[in-house]
Design a protein around this nucleic acid. Structure first.
Lengths: 189, 189
DNA sequence: TGTACATCAGTGAACGCGCGTTCACTGATGTAC
DNA sequence: TGTACATCAGTGAACGCGCGTTCACTGATGTAC
């Protein structure tokens, strides 16, 4: 078992997928080569057959996490693309708050990314841009208003994960969800 | 030098102040006892005369960073308390974005705090609460709208630190600053 | 279809390194006379 | 005011530990005949 060529590709995929999850749940720096490999059922030595180094893995895991997170934001389990109200409802849901490992990597890693190296910041910047543009499409192309909506959504989700009292955390999500969902109608200014 | 009792209190203060800055610039996990002490001009061994452990220091540094950050948000260099428009302008300024070490610790550490232990989350929750209440005071006591304003401000500041292109980062700050400042007038809904 | 062999994915011991923490020591401070 | 001594803030060597990385090895895979 595990010595075939197909097996190698499969294992690489499992390592990367697990890393992309863990990075969102515990942060980029939480990844240790040994722990990651054993969680996937392998030993640490084999890691370097798949990746150049820990930091190579981290870069790929970040990219993967951002892509997965973006897909989750726009698609339902059913696979149908979400309209604006649906996006906001799903993004600012308790489900999303409680499952960072499969959620938006922007919100999961904002403050970490602010101090990351230039390469990581560039990668994440691109995903922030896509997010804003995608929201702008729902808001008559108004990028400024989209920037507000995205900032509020990312901020609220990240804050909701800090707030210790569940009722208060829920209330924050609800307040921002209702407000942002209403930004679709009525172009102000 | 540095063997007097007054000197001890002074050194403890310098260690804590430096840690509170570094925690905001580089994250909680970036603190190493040896590096911190040598930045303050002391050797690592003396650390344990001031704090029980690294994690004790971290808890105190977080508290300190949150308090300093909150003061900075509401007071100008001159010392006068800021009105709402002033708060928003200052919070979402390039100056604040570029000086995380003296700025709001909530924005500097949101995503980190989301995965911190319960004690740290509680401490930070209290500061989030105060921030929201203080903003609500400016918005006719409307806590829901204050939650939106705070989420947008924290989200925008944290995102602006990730965005690699300075012009785009500036544009995000400006868009959210203008929008949030305008939330003071007109109670919607 | 069956056998012999080369390949190479994965193993696990070993490495150097940085870190948090401990502790015996030093020498300046400040008190007692 | 001056001397002797106790205190204790800070020093730096040493510790155990976990981590990223390397490498000689193993044994299953898959190819050549």
């Amino acid at each position: 078992m595990g010595h075939s060529q197909a097996g190698k590709a499969h294992n690489r995929e499992r390592i990367l997928a697990e890393a992309a999850r863990q990075v969102r749940r515990e942060g980029l720096e939480s990844i240790s080569v040994g722990a990651l490999m054993s969680r996937v059922g392998l030993t640490h030595g084999g890691f370097y057959g798949h990746f150049d180094s820990r930091s190579d893995l981290l870069a790929q895991a970040l990219e993967r996490a951002l892509t997965e997170g973006a897909e989750r934001s726009r698609a339902q389990a059913s696979g149908h693309p979400l309209d604006f109200a649906g996006l906001v409802r799903s993004y600012l849901s308790r489900t999303h708050r409680d499952a960072p490992e499969t959620g938006c990597a922007i919100a999961a890693l904002v403050s970490d990314a602010g101090r990351a190296d230039a390469a990581s910041r560039v990668v994440m910047s691109e995903h922030i841009d896509s997010f804003v543009r995608s929201v702008a499409d729902d808001l008559d192309g108004d990028e400024a208003r989209a920037a507000v909506a995205v900032s509020a959504m990312v901020g609220a989700l990240a804050l909701s994960r800090v707030i210790a009292d569940p009722a208060r955390s829920d209330a924050l999500l609800r307040a921002v969800r209702d407000y942002v969902a209403a930004m679709e109608e009525g172009s102000q200014a």
